[in-house]
Design a protein around this nucleic acid. Structure first.
Length: 106
DNA sequence: CTATTGACGACAT
DNA sequence: CATGTCGCCAATA
């Protein structure tokens, strides 16, 4: 069974368009929990819908890859296959491919 | 309730 | 750029 928090995270990342990515922190912010980036990653790790949810499109806020249940190597391949360029250690054009979620209530 | 654990983040060295 | 430390948060034992 999923907790509300986990469901929120999954629902959110499910919306990330192909060829774009988001960060754990951005997701945390979108959930009004700006400091819960770590918990977000934790939720994805459990990810019960592995192929179903594009969890590979979630990276660290500094542009690095972050982890992946199937191994970062795998993560890199998938991202490249979706057109994301990776500069050895970080993603290229991060600001261009970074997907921002809709603004929180004003 | 307390302790531990991680797909994190910011900063210092 | 590479490591290490500390703070943070939710889930679990």
């Amino acid at each position: 069974m999923l907790t509300e928090f986990e469901k929120s995270v999954l629902e959110l990342i499910k919306k990330i368009p192909k060829g774009k990515v988001s960060t754990y922190q951005e997701i945390a912010k979108a959930l009004s929990r700006p400091r819960a980036a770590r918990a977000v990653g934790n939720a994805l790790n459990k990810n019960p819908f592995a192929p179903k949810i594009p969890c590979h499109r979630v990276i660290k806020s500094d542009g690095r890859l972050g982890g992946y249940a199937f191994g970062q190597k795998r993560k890199i391949n998938i991202l490249r296959a979706e057109g994301v360029e990776i500069d050895g250690i970080k993603l290229k054009n991060l600001t261009k491919i970074l997907y921002l979620f809709k603004e929180r209530q004003s």
